[in-house]
Amino acid sequence: MKRDIYAYRCRKCGHLHYPYRMVCAKCGENEHNEFDPEPLPKAGTLLTFTELYALPGDFEVPTLGLGIVELENGIRITGQLRIDEPASGMKVIGEVEVVRNEEYEKYYGMVFCEA
């Protein structure tokens, strides 16, 4: 199954939000639900990253790559990295996968590989 992460476009001014907001950050439009969901693109550029060695207790991996990516449409997203030697400015491509397993719930999010 192909999954997406959604951004939210204000119906009044067209400003795109990720993550969701109840009131438009640009025009202040506050009629509830006046946003159209829109799937985020998957390709982008890695802005910055880290390799995390002190993980939250529920992660059963030794280290975790995390980064901030600027997607093709200019929206930025935080995601996990599956890249051996990441570098700022690297072109990356994402996929929506399970990023966290808690006892009763799976969480899906963006995981990036080198493009």
Partner: peptide
Amino acid sequence: IYGVTLPS
């Protein structure tokens, strides 16, 4: 959800 902590 990504495992982001303040140190990261």
